Computed example of a mutant assay.
Amino acid sequence: MTLIKTENLTKIYSDGKVQVEALKSVNLEIEAGEFVVVAGPSGSGKTTLLNLIGGLDKPTDGKVYLEGVDISLLKRDEMADFRLRKIGFIFQAYNLIPVLTAFENVELPLILLGISESERRKRVMEVLNLLEIGELADKKPNEMSGGQQQRVAVARAIVTNPSIVLADEPTAHLDSKTGAMLIDLMQEMNRKRGITFVICSHDPQVIQKAGRLIKLRDGTIEDDKKFW
């Protein structure tokens, strides 16, 4: 099943009189269950593509479909609700709320979805234990290592059972060993839960783990290979 489809996706940023074409008529299809790595040098359009797929930004031209819905047509509140239900995000800076515990950070999207307290507790502890960080439930971000914080971010991204998880340079602030462990965990979530991952990265060890590797250069797809 086609999960993501882009048609002539174009994004132009204007800086005064200067216009930068970050993406140029990108046509792409991503199937449900894929483990995709989007690679390319700085300025190639990786983050722009991720932001457009996730509805965090609007295209200058072209369309993005998620499960057949043209998300570029959604109003702001509709997009926010759609994103909450369908998309999980993992950011390189973790983006955890510092005053909340690991449990509370992961629980937050479930509260927004109106899930009952008993079901929230069950689902939060399930994903924390799945990622082997159940013992961190009552700890706040400043009491965790970078790798632990990123695992909490992964837990928050998958706790809603999203259709797709988008990760922007998730290993950027991690040492190589911790980064490798994190990508292995994402692959495990992909295989065990069937969660579709799209990961933007220029980290060689992330690229090596790709089930499908899409290379961007100057806002266009330079290469697209599927390995498994």
Rank of each mutant, 00 (worst) to 15 (best):
P162F: 09
S163Q: 04
D168V: 00
A39K: 07
L52S: 10
E107M: 04
E104L: 07
G16E: 09
S163R: 05
L84W: 09
T10R: 15
T171N: 14
L131R: 02
K5L: 03
A137Q: 14
V38Y: 13
S116Q: 14
M1C: 03
S44L: 09
M186Y: 07
R120I: 12
I133Y: 10
K63V: 00
V20Y: 14
S14F: 05
A155V: 01
L110Y: 11
Q148A: 13
K225H: 12
I133A: 10
G55P: 01
A153F: 11
G33F: 08
K140F: 11
V99Q: 11
E107L: 04
N129C: 02
T10F: 15
L49V: 01
M181E: 15
H202E: 10
N8V: 00
G146M: 03
V154L: 09
L113V: 04
L213W: 08
I199R: 11
G134E: 08
T47H: 13
K11E: 07
Q148T: 06
V124Q: 15
I12D: 12
A22G: 05
S176I: 10
N142R: 07
R83V: 02
P204G: 11
P59R: 00
G68H: 13
D138S: 14
V152I: 03
S163V: 00
T160A: 13
D223P: 04
F82L: 00
L52W: 03
K215A: 12
G62P: 01
T220P: 09
L136Y: 02
P204Q: 10
F91H: 11
A153L: 07
F197I: 00
G134K: 07
I111A: 07
V64C: 01
A153M: 10
G55V: 00
M79V: 01
Y13W: 14
D224G: 04
T10K: 15
K122V: 04
T160S: 15
L166A: 02
K225Y: 09
E188A: 06
A32D: 12
L113Q: 15
Q205L: 14
D168C: 04
R121Q: 14
G40P: 04
M181K: 14
I195G: 14
I115H: 08
N161E: 12
K215F: 07
K225N: 10
I30G: 06
V159S: 12
L56E: 05
T2R: 01
L49Y: 08
D203A: 09
I53V: 05
Y94G: 10
P170R: 12
M181G: 10
E34M: 01
K11V: 02
V26W: 03
G134S: 08
G45R: 11
E143Y: 05
Y65T: 00
V36R: 10
A32I: 01
N129E: 06
I97D: 08
D175G: 13
K24C: 04
T60S: 15
L50A: 05
E222G: 05
F35H: 11
R123I: 03
E222N: 09
G55D: 02
N27Y: 10
K215I: 09
S116P: 05
D81Y: 15
S163E: 07
